[in-house]
Design a protein around this nucleic acid. Structure first.
Length: 587
RNA sequence: GCCCCCGUAGCUCAAUGGACAGAGCACCGGCCUUCUAAGCCGUAGGUUGUAGGUUCGAUUCCUGCCGGGGGCGCCA
């Protein structure tokens, strides 16, 4: 937000260094002054001093850094827009003229509104593939992490200035699906799903897994179903179509509920044909080692890349019976995405356990000359476990169902609301309960680094206190509550005519960080930066709320504070929106 | 055997190579005639797994070791 100011000062620093014959060529790194209540930008001269030391000059680095900082400070004087410049411990600290900058920040937020925080369109297009649910199975809490991460990353990229294509890749085909069909035909033929469709699909899947273990002929029968499916007018194919749709309808309900949408759906069942074409081609090029029917057709990736050490291992593409495997599908899909859209980047939000798989796919495509694959990126995330390091598994049915979790959280939020705000009408309360419940479900998954395993336990999951979505939502409600009580329109922009409180400065400072944080989150594909900022904003607002009266303030003070409250409300709402979390008006 | 990830307060987690390693939970003690107490303030809690290395400076980068988790030819 302060690029112009930084640039102007950078030029002066460079000029000074040149004049003093100090070799300062590298970029200056700017940071915020890290002490509370102080507001400004800082840079240091350790690197410069170290460079001098390396070039033969006899200097003690910290001392020399301080010397340079002092020299620069003297040279700069007090630049326009700053109130004070100091050199301390090798750092150059430039303190903003509070009034001027406070006004600039508030004006920017209020003028830009929901757009505040967004970067300029950068002309780049990126696809984010996420969710990838399997039909004929239940949705559990483990799937939620992927959904939330993917949706939030897509939002972040969009805010940062990318053109974003949100895609989903539905697992509607494969052995597990056929296993479900097999079991359905044997034990549930003709049954229609109950209202709770997705749960029922999951139950039948668990049953299929169990029954198959006890059934010697099962494997052969499933193989036969695979063969039937190939013919599009077979009963197997028709049954597959019908049951698959049950799952898809259920998924769409969940997406609607979670506020997620997709621009493009891909299906594994569509990949069969093009996958086989690719494999045929690779066989003819000698890249695929075809051991059928004695074994699978595979790509020996290390060999392909000419590596001696086992690194990328072997990617299986066809079963010995000739049916294709997901390795082949991904070879097809990775290319198809770049054909369907003019992408500058292609992001896959997929469980970390598939890291090797994606390396195999990407390396293979690179080796066969598909240049664009260099722009493909696997964004891995860790799993959600149950206490005791227990991995959720659809096969064993050891899972916390998404719908159970949502129901419990909603009930809990409703109960808390009854207690804390008894006057709410029923319709509003239900809306609040829904917003709070979904927020509290989503937030912890987004506030954790992708590489960290999450552990689900009910008590923590239903805790609405502290570092949580409801805390942030509540800050938004408080801000809204103040503004609602003011009948008149927001005052016009003006410089503050009183000395701002530290709590006010801290809040404004955080607000000003949003654009940079969005960019950083986009660069690193990390939702964590947004959740951290949203929380810090809420905390700073609560502090302000307690220390600084607004409605009872002197008219001149109130002027600025009302604009600050409006900017804070907007800022919190924008952060929550990026995260896919609702910002309620009341709670 | 090869590869990847994690290790920070009692617990769960933060921390662009930078100034004093910060939050929440839990514990203890305060604050509702005052813009919604789903809130605020205070106390306490640390050899950042360990041994080295790089650096002016390491929780952050590199190497070894210890502990935990995950992946590795016909599931996805």
């Amino acid at each position: 937000m302060f690029e112009q100011e930084q640039q102007a000062i950078e030029e002066q620093i460079r000029a000074y260094c040149k004049q003093q014959d100090i070799p300062s060529t590298e970029e200056l790194k700017w940071a915020r002054i890290p002490f509370s209540g102080e507001w400004g930008i800082a840079t240091s001269f350790f690197q410069t001093a170290a460079n001098e030391a390396r070039s033969g000059k006899k200097v003690v680095v910290p001392q020399r850094a301080q010397e340079i900082a002092e020299g620069v400070a003297e040279h700069l004087g007090t630049p326009q827009g700053f109130s004070r410049v100091e050199a301390v411990k090798g750092y150059l600290n430039l303190y903003f003229s509070t009034d001027e900058y406070a006004r600039t920040v508030l004006d920017t937020v209020i003028t830009q509104g929901v757009e505040y925080g967004n970067g300029l369109a950068n002309g780049q297009s990126v696809m984010v593939e996420f969710s990838q649910p399997n039909t004929h199975k239940a949705l559990h809490v483990g799937h939620l992490r992927n959904m939330m991460l993917g949706a939030a990353v897509a939002n972040i990229l969009e805010c940062a200035g990318y053109e974003v294509v949100r895609s989903n890749y539905i697992g509607d085909f494969g052995r597990d699906v056929m296993k479900w069909i097999w079991n359905y035909e044997k034990r549930h033929d003709g049954e229609e799903p109950p209202e709770d469709t997705t749960r029922w699909m999951g139950d039948l899947y668990a049953e299929a897994t169990q029954k198959l273990e006890e059934d010697e002929a099962g494997e052969t029968e499933i193989q036969a179903l695979f063969a039937d499916w190939e013919s599009k007018d077979s009963p197997t194919y028709k049954l597959w179509q019908k049951t698959r749709q049950w799952s898809l309808d259920g998924f769409n309900d969940v997406y609607t509920q979670m506020g997620i949408h997709f621009d493009r759906f891909y299906y594994e069942s569509e990949m069969e044909e093009s996958a086989k074409e690719i494999v045929e081609e690779l066989i003819s090029k000698g890249i695929v080692t075809d051991d059928r029917p004695d074994g699978p057709a595979v790509i020996k990736v290390d060999e392909l890349l000419g590596l001696d050490k086992e690194t990328y291992r072997v990617l299986a593409v066809l079963r010995s019976d000739g049916t294709s495997l997901y390795g082949a599908w991904d070879l097809a899909l990775a290319q198809k995405k770049f054909i369907d859209y003019p992408l500058d980047r292609s992001v896959y939000v997929v469980d970390v356990r598939q890291s090797l798989h994606f390396q195999q796919v990407f390396k293979t495509l690179e080796a066969v000359g598909f240049e664009k694959i260099k722009d493909a990126f696997h964004l891995p995330y860790e799993v959600v476990n149950l206490p005791g390091n227990l991995t959720m598994s659809s096969r064993d049915g050891v899972i916390v169902l998404l719908e159970d979790f949502i129901r419990e959280a909603t009930q809990r939020a409703y109960d808390v609301s009854l207690e804390t705000n008894p006057e709410l009408d029923e319709v509003t309360r239900k809306g609040v309960a829904n917003a709070v419940a979904l927020g509290s479900i989503k937030y912890p998954l987004l506030a954790r680094d992708n590489t960290k395993i999450a552990t689900f336990d009910w008590e923590t999951a239903l805790d609405f206190n502290g570092h949580s979505a409801p805390y942030i939502q509540y800050a938004h409600v408080r801000a809204n509550s103040i503004l609602r009580r003011v009948d008149k329109a927001l005052p016009d922009s003006s410089n503050p005519t009183y000395e701002l409180e530290p709590a006010e400065i801290a809040l404004i400072e955080l607000i000003s960080q949003i654009p940079d944080t969005v960019q950083r989150a986009a660069d690193e594909y990390r939702t964590l930066h947004i959740t951290n900022l949203a929380y810090d904003l809420a905390k700073a607002f609560n502090d302000f709320y307690n220390r600084c009266p607004v409605l009872k303030a002197e008219p001149e003070v109130q002027l600025t504070r009302l604009r600050l409250v409006a900017a804070a409300r907007q800022s919190i709402a924008n952060c929550l929106r990026i995260l896919g979390i609702e910002a309620p008006e009341v709670m």
